[in-house]
Amino acid sequence: MKSAVILFPGTNRENDAIAALEQASGSKPQLVWHGETELPKVDLIMIPGGFSYGDYLRSGAMAGKSPVMRAVADQAKAGVSIIGVCNGFQILTETHLLPGALMRNAHLKFICKRAALKIENAETRFTSKYDAGQVVKYPVAHHDGNYFADSETLDRLEGEGRVALRYCDDDGVVAPETNLNGSQRNIAGILNEKGNVLGMMPHPENAIDPLHGGIDGRGLFSSMVEALS
């Protein structure tokens, strides 16, 4: 699997993304700067976390309009797989590659902890190594992770199996009290209509080494390698 990682001014999780992609695929991803208008020919494009453009205006707003994101949108339309984590998810909603928006966490606090997540759909190129309903733990680190979409959009996402992950407790119970940040229907990650674009707030790339405190994130990367190699 060949991959690329997009870099914006203020991105800070690129090395974690590179480490996870390299561990799973055996080859180093190519780095692409935000001003580029063309992308290398790859199977997967990852938009890592951070604070692109200092989160000015809205998280992901500036990055969403940058030259490289026009190229990413073209690649998404052509069927290339795209994964956006944290700020990457915010950027994907700002470019309208994914519906909805990520707002300030409902309790207004920055959250930095390990979160339990329920795999809602295990029949995607990103999650096939997991079982449906499985509980995994990835770290979360965000201030603007409160997923919002109108109820019609939410119903469509659910109906089409496009909710990939939800915040839950250790037993997989999805409830208001297991909702970390106020997201509508506990949504932590969603897919686009074609299933080739995934956006998620939690960080699977920070759960790939026992020293991280867990290796649950490996499944996501090995799913992609299996599907895209």
Partner: peptide, 9 residues
């Protein structure tokens, strides 16, 4: 429409 507002919210 393009930048200043996110018309989703």
């Amino acid at each position: 429409e393009k930048l200043l507002a996110n018309t989703v919210i």
